[in-house]
Design a protein around this nucleic acid. Sequence first.
DNA 1: CCTTGAACCTCTAGTTACTAGAGGAACTAT
DNA 2: ATAGTTCCTCTAGTAACTAGAGGTTCAAGG
Lengths: 136, 136
Amino acid sequence: MYSIGELSKRTGVKIPTIRYYEDMGLLEQPIRSQGNQRRYSEDGLKQLSFIRHSRELGFSIEDIKELLELSQHPEYPCADAHAIATRHLEEVRERERKLRKLKKELLRITKCNADSISECAVIETLADHEQCVTEH
Amino acid sequence: MYSIGELSKRTGVKIPTIRYYEDMGLLEQPIRSQGNQRRYSEDGLKQLSFIRHSRELGFSIEDIKELLELSQHPEYPCADAHAIATRHLEEVRERERKLRKLKKELLRITKCNADSISECAVIETLADHEQCVTEH
DNA sequence: CCTTGAACCTCTAGTTACTAGAGGAACTAT
DNA sequence: ATAGTTCCTCTAGTAACTAGAGGTTCAAGG
């Protein structure tokens, strides 16, 4: 049996965040002590580790809900799990593409050697979209 | 003189968002018609274009506030503008690095060929951090 | 058994950058 | 004058937490 503080230390997830996951229906409601404090089993620890790791990989709370559900049915086909992961991968790729474009523009404008605002490439570019090399 | 709807069409910024920028102190309060409707000048259009473009490049509202302020003082040195842009570039780089790591893990796990959850690499990886090739 | 300090409880509100909707007033064209 | 569109303010919702207030429980020492 772990207290919420113990669980927090073992997983690195902050206490209010653990309660939040419970509220969201991600983490099962643990049993309570006589004084109404949360008491977690080994299973609770495993669930929270799963959640934490999924969050680190950028899955949304909703996705994790499904993934957790799936993980509790070893005999299910794993097509659904793959679909979630593949969709997420696509989102990550898309975000990366956008960041690369951003980086390109930012690299260009930060090379400015001007002294004053009146000639500054940063300000000029922001005021005039035409100066951008990529479309956005 | 542009109505808020006109301004919205010309800049591609939605009407509630324009009002939001005004509330945040980004966009100057325009004059009002007799019936209390917003009426924008050419300057308002320019300001909003600047804001929109800055947002497209990922600058925060707070950063844009400073950049707009700077842009209105052509004689100021542009070191501050550079500092903001450079810091932002660093953040973009950092996010890109993280996404690359994410992508690497996601690529690995989505290659799984299993049929059932019990052998699925997606689920296994989420349950066991040790299987990851990058640290996070 | 009692006390004390740490850890826990619930509930509310704040973060970022918007977006949607309700209920009502103003503008514009016929 | 009227109808239809556009506008007004205000409130609340989004994602995933995080912080704080005000109060209760737990565990260890005397």
